[in-house]
Amino acid sequence: MTTDMNFDFLQSARRTIKLEQEAIAQLEGRLTDDFATACQLILNCKGRVVVTGMGKSGHIGNKMAATLASTGTPAFFVHPGEASHGDMGMIQPSDVVIALSNSGETGEVTSLLPLLKRLGTALISMTGNPESTLGRAANAHLNTGVNQEACPLNLAPTSSTTCALVMGDALAVALLEARGFTAEDFAFSHPGGSLGRRLLLKVEDIMHGGSQIPVVTSAATLSEALLVVTSKGLGMTTVQDNGKLSGIFTDGDLRRAIDNGVDIHTATMADVMTVGGKTTTPGTLAAEALKLMEDNKINALVVKDGDQTVGVINMHDLLRAGVI
């Protein structure tokens, strides 16, 4: 093996991309009614979808199982070699198996066929040869064949694995749409992601409640209110009279009071507070609370449950929670 130091890397990359694009373009023409049959088998499945494949097909299968699981179709990957040494116990008659093999003759995969038949487990195959052992044994066959691999030797799985990946995505998306899968459903599968936080996190999950709520009355002096604002560390205080919210006092209100020449030594909350103030509820999505703050150019909201003040929330809380 010798290295050509003058090799045109860009030309090679363009050739690979072109060949894989052509392979994907041809994939649509290989779709048959078996694709719809595969979808129905999975939709009617009472168990789980079990994806299996060897080598590069196995790597694609792993990704396929992950995509299915995150879009409403419970799925997991089983290595075919391990299946022959105990992991067949993970597969049940109520499951559906998706088996990947470009040739359709991979020994580790085809050796599972008698066992799957004995279990009565439905089988979907994804191969490049419908007449292969795996293709003929399946209840539904998805043809991912290619005319040529992107590998110049036509040996390394390249175009074929790309087509298998695309077919897996097509399967997952078709099932997603058939199930009426929503953005909120997706968030439940991705609670650690930014989408999950925006669609699942509620005000009650991050608000300051109980003794953390800063409270003064409308008769409290400005200096008394500032002590409460400082001690609670939220940059604001609620103003409540007889258990009812009268208003809110924030850093912004203090600046406006000073700009208006208010005597800070004698002024009371009734003189300087924002009457009423913007409020939200405990069950409101944190993302909606953020939008309310942004729309009104404010940094804090009072949280009310009916007439009762139950908490406060500010921009820092949303930032720490990852909503921003």
Rank of each mutant, 00 (worst) to 15 (best):
I213P: 03
L285K: 12
G29R: 09
T274L: 08
D251P: 11
I17M: 12
A225F: 09
F188M: 13
M167T: 13
G128S: 05
P157E: 00
C151T: 06
F35Y: 11
L319K: 10
V203T: 06
G192P: 01
S103A: 06
L142I: 14
S70P: 06
N242R: 15
A300E: 11
D263Y: 02
S84M: 15
E149M: 13
F76E: 09
A36V: 14
N260H: 13
L10R: 15
C45G: 06
S125W: 01
N260V: 10
S94L: 07
S211C: 07
T217H: 13
L115N: 08
L41Q: 11
V166Q: 05
F249C: 13
G145Y: 10
N314W: 03
T121M: 00
Q40G: 12
G311S: 04
G89N: 14
T268Y: 01
A183E: 11
E105C: 07
A220R: 00
L123E: 03
M1W: 04
D33S: 14
A267Y: 01
G29K: 02
Q212D: 14
S194F: 07
A69K: 11
N299C: 02
G104T: 01
R256E: 03
V97S: 09
P93F: 05
M90Q: 12
G233A: 08
D251G: 14
V51N: 04
L119S: 10
V173S: 04
D307H: 08
L285E: 07
G86F: 06
T133N: 13
D307G: 04
T217K: 14
L142F: 06
D87E: 15
